[in-house]
Structure formats: structure tokens, C-alpha cells
Design a protein around this nucleic acid. Structure first.
Lengths: 213, 213
DNA sequence: GGCTGTGAAGGAATTCACAGCC
DNA sequence: GGCTGTGAATTCCTTCACAGCC
């Protein structure tokens, strides 16, 4: 397998989601053209992206929805079950714990952490809320590898500290509009989701009359 | 102004975020190197990005934090006040209405819409909750141009319908993991935020040991 | 010395165009 | 005819390297 563009990976994730929706609806076969329409890209792009990983289609017909879905899951390592926790059980953290888009993915949000005694011991969706003091211990016990970071800005340093010390954690989805810095040698993947940035881009696109993803 | 890469726009939005944080802290001057560190990119990239729009720096010194911030706001049309509403006042919608990252941006979330009578008439953060039936009317009256879409999957079609009919709306930030299609000729910018996709990418990055944004 | 700004070079990603298959 | 798969061409984006300035 050659060097796959990251942009391809991002689209593959979209294809996967789309395929799952289609197969829920009972659609067995899909063409690159259809897949492209659902994901705002071009048919050539779809075919090119998939061609990095193998030949999955039937000429003249298209792709078997379910088969392709399984292939893509494997590519994204999404067939594995990932245990995810949420750090910060405020309104955003709680909403993310309940987010319907995680349903039917391999990602299970099984714990949330907060320092508010009122919240500790309660449940949000599937996730039990624990005292943040027990982060390391519970992350280990429950084999959690990803954190969704949704604490208030002021608590970021503390969160960095705790995550740095917890060797299990290998990825962070960060909703706090601050650049987070870990004090650790080990590699931790970080994806920032900055919603204000999205709105900035949206206003730019409006001015330019474009569409994007 | 030449043809500016979209990738540049995305980074510019990050620079802006970062500059505002720095000037809050009282930092007056910043170099491309520093800005790059805060936004996980390279100094050359920062300078190149900015050079699309003009010359903002002082050689040997760096950039005036506040001045640059104002310039970038203008570029992104973010100096304008945008009125934003939320469609769907469930847990995600409510959390977004309260999202701290929108503070100190030009984006004001001034209304939310739902069909739950229990919610209508209440307030979430700054936003009053209205009956979705009055969407068009209130959007017009309040001069709202952007929608944050956070309804359940099942309600997407209805939402598409309503938005299509409301000429004011020019941009959508979509949190529903579905490709939305408007029945209108006018241009509406759409940005999809798919959180499950982010987790897919995160697991891919973990496997590859990389970092990104 | 330390920084910006920018053409030029290089590298990456997308689109084209067509061969091959059912 | 309708579709996939893929080298080749093109477009887009990033990095390099250095001129110019304080």
C-alpha cells in the first residue's frame, strides 16, 4: 500500500458512514457516482480513493454496499472496538456522550469524568460519571484509549497533566479552543474541533458562494 | 487578491482564534514562529498564508497582535456581526447554544427552534427558544443568516424543507450525520461536522502515530 | 541577529481520459 | 451502455532559500 493522502482517509470515513446508512435502508449496490453525490465529491475521486486500498467494485455494476463497508472499517481500524471517555461532563460533554452519530460505530463512550460531586455517580447515556481524581485508574481498568476533551478553558492545564500521566491514552478529540500541550514523550494523536473556526469559515464561504465539508 | 487556497482560509481562522487569545493575555507582538507553534504548522506556512492578503508584519520584529487580528477578521468577514440560530434544542443544540468558544467572536446565537412545547418560551444561554413553526418569520425579523443544525436524524427532511423556504439563510453548520439537500436555487454554504468521522480519523492517526487538526 | 515576504522548486492531491469488463 | 480502475496530466499546496529590512 502506497502513501495514502490524509484527505483520502477523511473521505473514506465519510464513505463508510454513508454506506452504513445505505445498507440500513436495504440498498445492496452503489456506484461511485451515487457515493460521490452523498459525500459532496466526484466519482473519480471516490474511485481513486478506494483504489489506494484495493479493488472492491464490479465493473458495470458498482460496489456491494455491505462488503465495501466492511473493507473500509478494516482500513480505518474501525472494526476494532474503541473505548472512549469524556473529560468534562458539562453541557457539551453530556451532549457528546449522548450523540446519536456514535451509534453503530465501533466507538463506545463508556465513562465521563468531572469534579462536580453532584454529577459523580450519575449516568449520561451509557457513560457512568466518575471523579476525575480516579481518571488514571479507571482508564486502565476499562481499557480506554481515547479522550473527548470538553472541559472549560480554565481546566485545560489540569486535564493536560492528567492525560500526560495516563499511558493508556493514545488519542484526543479536543473541543476546547486552546492549543493543548502534553508533557509526555509518547505519541498522542490530537484532533482539534474548533466550532468558532467553523463559523469563520462558513462566513467566508457565504461571501464566496461556495459549499464544502 | 489571487486565488486563495481553502486550506489557507482554514488556517487563517485558527490564527485569528490564537491572536485573540494572545491579546487577551496582553501579548502585543507575535512572530510567525510563535504563531506556528500555537497552531501546529510551520512559520513559512504562516507567512505564506498571510502574504495572500497583504503585508502585515514588521521585519525583525513580528506581527502586532491586535492589528493582525483585525485584519484577519476583515478577511474572514468576521468583523461583521452574524446572527445565528440553532435548529433543534436537544442536548447537542443546547450545548452549542452555550458553547464558550463562541464568546468574543462576532457570532451571536440569538434563537433556537424546537417543536417541544415544554421548551418553547424558555431560554438557553442567550437564545430564546421558539416554535419551529415560526422559523421563517423570526429568522426574518431577527435578521438571522446562519443555522446550526442539530435536530435528530428523523427530523432532517422537515428541517431541509423549512430552511429551503427561508431566503435569509445563507449558511448551515450541520451536526447531523446525513447529507442534507436543499430544494432551492440560491447558494447556501454548508459545513458538515461529523463527530464519528473525527473518531475514525483519530483511530487511523493513532495507528500511524501522527498528529493533526 | 532576527525577523518578514516571496518567487521558485518541489511535492501532493485531484481531474482527465481511456482501457477493460460485464 | 454503464460501470470500475488507473496511469498521465494538471492543478493545488507547501517548503525552500534568499533578498530586504530593522
Amino acid at each position: 500500500m502506497k502513501n495514502v493522502p490524509l484527505a483520502t482517509i477523511e473521505r473514506v470515513a465519510k464513505y463508510l458512514r454513508c454506506l452504513n446508512r445505505l445498507s440500513e435502508k436495504g440498498i445492496k449496490v452503489v456506484s461511485s457516482k451515487e457515493l460521490a453525490e452523498h459525500t459532496r465529491t466526484s466519482p473519480e475521486q471516490v474511485r481513486k480513493d478506494l483504489s489506494y486500498f484495493g479493488r472492491f467494485g464490479k465493473t458495470g455494476t458498482g460496489y456491494d454496499t455491505q462488503k465495501l463497508s466492511r473493507k473500509l472499517e478494516r482500513i480505518l481500524k474501525a472494526q476494532k472496538k474503541w473505548n472512549v471517555c469524556i473529560l468534562g461532563a458539562g453541557s457539551l460533554g453530556s451532549a457528546l456522550a449522548r450523540y446519536q452519530g456514535f451509534k453503530d460505530t465501533g466507538y463506545n463512550i463508556i465513562a465521563a469524568f468531572d469534579n462536580d460531586p453532584e454529577k459523580i455517580g450519575t449516568k449520561i447515556g451509557q457513560a457512568e460519571v466518575y471523579d476525575i481524581k480516579n481518571f488514571k485508574e479507571i482508564v486502565k481498568k476499562k481499557d480506554i484509549q481515547m479522550v473527548i476533551l470538553a472541559v472549560p478553558k480554565e481546566a485545560v492545564e489540569e486535564a493536560e497533566e492528567i492525560i500526560s500521566k495516563t499511558n493508556n491514552i493514545r488519542g484526543i478529540l479536543n473541543f476546547v479552543p486552546v492549543t493543548i500541550k502534553l508533557k509526555t514523550r509518547r505519541k498522542v494523536a490530537i484532533i482539534d474541533v474548533d466550532l468558532a473556526q467553523k463559523l469563520y469559515i462558513l462566513s467566508y464561504l457565504i461571501k464566496r458562494g461556495r459549499e464544502m465539508t
